[in-house]
Design a binder for these strands. Structure first.
Lengths: 119, 119
DNA sequence: AAAGTTACCTTGTTATGCAAAGTAGTGAAA
DNA sequence: TTTCACTACTTTGCATAACAAGGTAACTTT
């Protein structure tokens, strides 16, 4: 069902940015490694999504990067969080918690109402 | 910080559709009432978001509506879930669960890595 | 050198929330 | 009866962001 597939994409939106900041907060990482980490967590993403997002986060001063030579292959851009990125990330954690609570509340109320309706 | 405000909007996106289907699943409801329910759950939304979304869900055959006269005021469109809407909603519940698990995994791994780094 | 691998980037499309302004039915006050 | 207030639904224009697909470039292997 294509509606559902699209809904999955839409739900991931915005949360992806949070996940990326969270992963970079662990320590410096480059894009290809980051993508593997997201896939491990079953956040299905593709390159064409991640690179523009990383560049946006750079422009917004939430991330910074350094070029590092690699042993066998092209050089890599390693990303780290800036101070600003760190504090925005904190705010995002609260946003995520709030969102989870809101959805839980809606589902809980829903059970409440339907139970009452049957009575 | 405007980055954070935007992140909140982006995170809500997509999840809003899920919340609306969930609320309509309880029983027929009209838009103004629906908006109050969302606000109670601290899902901050405005009319200009909800009406187009409801119309999209109608066009996608996830919802249907009937006009009902009201005692003091203009008539209201009461929405209910279609069978298709009901099964899409079930899929969305799984998507939401999966998303929560993914984010939890990322945060958990993050703690794991940073704890190790300090050692 | 030719082919393969790794890594990063860009363009065009589509979806969607929001702000702001608009339309319309009902009832009450001036 | 004209005006105002309230409720309810709608529309337009804008900005953001994920994705698909294709591209560029460094380095290694054959």
């Amino acid at each position: 069902m294509k509606e559902l597939e699209n809904a999955q994409i839409q739900m991931r939106k915005g949360i992806l940015e949070f996940c990326i900041l969270q992963i970079v907060a662990e320590g410096e990482i480059y894009a290809t490694e980051l993508i593997s980490r997201l896939r491990e967590a079953e956040m299905l993403v593709v390159e064409g999504t991640v690179y523009p997002l990383l560049n946006r986060l750079l422009r917004a001063d939430l991330l910074e990067h350094v070029w590092v030579e690699s042993l066998g292959g092209p050089p890599r851009k390693y990303y780290t969080l800036t101070d600003k990125g760190s504090s925005v990330l904190q705010g995002m954690r609260q946003t995520w918690d709030g969102l989870q609570k809101s959805v839980s509340k809606i589902i809980a109320d829903s059970n409440f109402y339907s139970t009452n309706k049957q009575a």
